[in-house]
Design a protein around this nucleic acid. Structure first.
Lengths: 195, 195
DNA sequence: CACTGGATAGAGCGTTCGTTCTAGTGCTGT
DNA sequence: ACAGCACTAGAACGAACGCTCTATCCAGTG
């Protein structure tokens, strides 16, 4: 993942564009041809790098989105020592990012996850993995702050769920407020576990 | 909305089926022909009742889902006096319903809402209205329980967001646990506002 | 009984979908 | 120089999409 050293490879461009398109339009709503066009690649290139077709591209895109969001999460949580303040500032950061994208770039996997619920596909598994991993990031922070194992697990699940839901609400309402409110309330909740 | 008296009209069947299909597969993922087939209607009937085409059907379906979920919410909240217990039992009820549907029937509008984010469509407005109305139901309960106006509004927003997110998480993970956890944590949060 | 208008029925339109296929390009190692 | 390979390029296929169209059915009315 060379960020600045080399220009992104064709494969990278495809994955990144697919991730953004799926994030915004969902899996069914995003066409292979649209991905190719947006990534400045041809259809042939897409099928060259992803012989498995659309679903293979989507799985790679989901995993990319998972890593990207995990970084954002880790980074935001590390900046504050107090977990309550950390979660609140994390929500604030999400709110700003959301507004700056015109309320379009929310959770990178929710849309795709909802579309592949009934299936036994690899996409479904990738989405479940993503959620679990994000919860792990929060759980780790809570454990480091003195939470018991059970509390940390349950609270981490709730934090991710709430951020997830608040992000959707903020997108639909085109307002930072739901995310800000969720941040404040989560902070309040976390503080009830102190000492 | 005659529930038992008369057999559902063709129009009703179309709306109900469209609502369930959109809930499960999203807007783009659901075809007009599939709606017609599932509702035991013909394509001609669908376009007869909804000359506006697919989007008109979807808007009706979203509004139907909004009402249905609002009923469920009101009913669950009314059964308990304490708002904390009420919200927790509400989450539990959602968890049971989710499992019984094979983790398919989650929030009736989330999938559609995420697909119509960028647009200025009537669907987008219908989805925003739905969220707002559900928040209103919770807010009313909180106000009746002695919350201040500001607290009630912010907490209601967070409750809906959290339930929304926890439902998605529960669906993706195919487990009641995320919803149960969210219920317990929301109850804990609400109790911090007592006296 | 003829007629009217709501409701039903489905063939078929143009378009776009995911995918496959063949052909061509540019770089690398020998 | 040339073979070999990774990659690019886009035409073409069958299927499915949303939608339009005409035809038919049937209860209610004069």
């Amino acid at each position: 993942m060379s960020l600045y050293s080399a220009p992104p490879s064709t494969r990278e461009r495809i994955v990144v564009c697919a991730a953004r398109l799926i994030q915004r339009q969902g899996y069914v709503g995003t066409g292979i041809k649209q991905i190719a066009q947006e990534a400045q690649a041809t259809l042939g290139s897409v099928y060259h790098f992803f012989p498995g077709g659309k679903e293979t591209v989507a799985v790679a895109a989901i995993k990319h989105g998972e890593k990207e969001f995990a970084w954002l999460l880790k980074d935001a949580l590390r900046r504050e020592d107090d977990p309550a303040a950390a979660v609140e500032s994390c929500a604030a950061e999400l709110a700003v990012g959301l507004r700056e994208s015109g309320w379009l770039d929310g959770c990178p996997i929710t849309a795709a996850a909802l579309e592949t619920l009934g299936t036994d596909s690899e996409m479904q598994r990738a989405c479940a993995d993503a959620l679990q991993r994000w919860e792990g990031v929060v759980e780790e922070k809570l454990l480091a702050s003195g939470f018991t194992a059970e509390d940390a697990a349950e609270v981490a699940t709730t934090v991710i769920s709430t951020l997830e839901g608040a992000e959707v609400t903020a997108q639909v309402r085109r307002s930072e407020e739901p995310l800000r409110a969720a941040g404040r309330q989560l902070a309040r909740l976390l503080r009830t576990y102190e000492a």
